[in-house]
């Protein structure tokens, strides 16, 4: 049973067509890595899945709910889909603890002590329980991204979307974030990860996709994708980045 289904999704920014008909399925518990050159539409595509961008044609169905203009559906989907951004987007005026508890209290209507308990649990899971009372500006990039992951997990989502989570990090911090993501993948979370970290893709992904020019060029298992790619475009891409 696939938890995300997209059918022929198309999107334009003005005259520029960013997505030229993407159809795919993601099964529950699957880890999917999307790779591709910049401008290929991979970020736009996963932003369409929780409606940060609006697709103009085609169908997106998340956990049986179709994304339409109906605000109810959008809110229902957003509360099941967690998202981690390239630039962290933590709330700088709130402490780490408040960042993680805010949505639990206001959206999930939990009481404060319950929410704080959950937050501490998650901070321990991502390995920074001692930073709970600090402000985001006082943390390193890697720590901020781990807080962002904890913030998304606090909503107990069924699906996690990662939009280039390590691209804004110094090399020595990338590992700490990837470790958290690996742990998350092993725990059975459904994940869609847009990334250039091919090591992560090889090790963790169940499937790897290559986007180019708004189209899905290749869809394969990691072994096949890296060792025996089907399309020439993939070969070119791999030769450029590896």
């Amino acid at each position: 049973m696939s938890i995300i289904q997209t059918k022929n999704v198309k999107k334009w920014f003005g005259d520029f067509q960013a997505l030229k008909g993407i159809s795919m399925d993601v099964a529950e518990g699957e880890v999917l890595v999307i790779a591709g050159p910049s401008g290929s539409g991979k970020s736009t595509f996963i932003r369409c899945i929780n409606r940060l961008e609006q697709h103009q044609e085609g169908q997106i169905i998340v956990d049986g709910i179709e994304l339409t203009n109906d605000l109810k559906n959008i809110e229902a989907i957003r509360s099941e889909v967690g998202m981690v951004f390239q630039s962290f987007n933590l709330f700088p005026h709130l402490t780490v603890m408040q960042n993680i508890t805010l949505a639990q209290i206001w959206v999930r209507k939990k009481n404060r002590s319950e929410a704080e308990e959950k937050a501490m649990e998650l901070l321990e899971r991502v390995g920074i329980p001692e930073q709970a009372q600090k402000f985001p500006g006082q943390l390193s990039g890697g720590q901020q991204q781990r807080v962002a992951i904890a913030r998304a997990l606090a909503m107990e989502p069924k699906i996690m979307l990662f939009d280039e989570p390590t691209s804004a990090l110094d090399p020595e911090m990338i590992k700490e974030v990837l470790d958290v993501m690996k742990e998350l993948a092993n725990s059975g979370m459904t994940m869609i990860v847009v990334t250039h970290e091919m090591g992560f893709a090889k090790e963790v992904a169940d499937r790897v996709m290559l986007f180019d020019d708004g189209m899905l060029v290749e869809e394969n298992t990691p072994e096949e994708f890296f060792n025996n790619p089907k399309s020439d475009r993939t070969k070119l891409f791999l030769s450029q980045i590896l």
């Binding site: 940060l52 809110e75 957003r78 998202m83």
Partner: peptide, 27 residues
């Protein structure tokens, strides 16, 4: 306020009113 703040609030399922009063206005 950077666009990312709006998106982050949207992504954790906040309503427009919550987004403005808890995230955007204080900053």
């Amino acid at each position: 306020i950077p666009k990312g703040q709006y998106e982050a609030a949207d992504a954790i399922g906040m309503s427009p009113f919550q987004k403005i009063s808890l995230i955007i206005m204080p900053q």
